[in-house]
Amino acid sequence: MSKTKDISLTVNGEVLTANVPVRMNLVDFLRHEAGLTGSHVGCEHGVCGACTIEVNSDTVRGCLMLAVQADGATVTTIEGLADSGRSAALIAAFTRRNALQCGFCTPGMLASAIAYVEGGGIADKQAIRDHISGNYCRCTGYQSVVDAIHDVVTEGASA
């Protein structure tokens, strides 16, 4: 029987309280307890980036943070990013550029890309590659992903 702890956190604008096993990582909590299955679980050691989410406005690895560490935090998952419209331009560009095939990496890729775009990232393909270097995609070869992010940065600059 796992040791447990009570936590309270805001997920996509909604306050959640739960009693969680202390060993449960945040992305498992979001998927299994909160029913938010948009964040994916790949490697569970911080290499693949599929579980990338936002905690207190910073992107983090959902597999390298315990749910108990998120006690009191504000968490935004890919569902929240979509509902608020923050990911809309990127989703459109990913679709247009065919920047996904199986889609497993896409939620994490979008979360990382949003941090780049909103953080004032420049329209430089090498800089974009460096930024998303923590997100694995096994389908696209990255070219179309980089193009999609580049499009959004360029659109933003001309908007």
Binding site: T59, A115, H131, G134, N135
Partner: peptide
Amino acid sequence: LPHIAHDAIRNR
């Protein structure tokens, strides 16, 4: 700093 892991890792 930019060489130390990735953006999401550097945030933690």
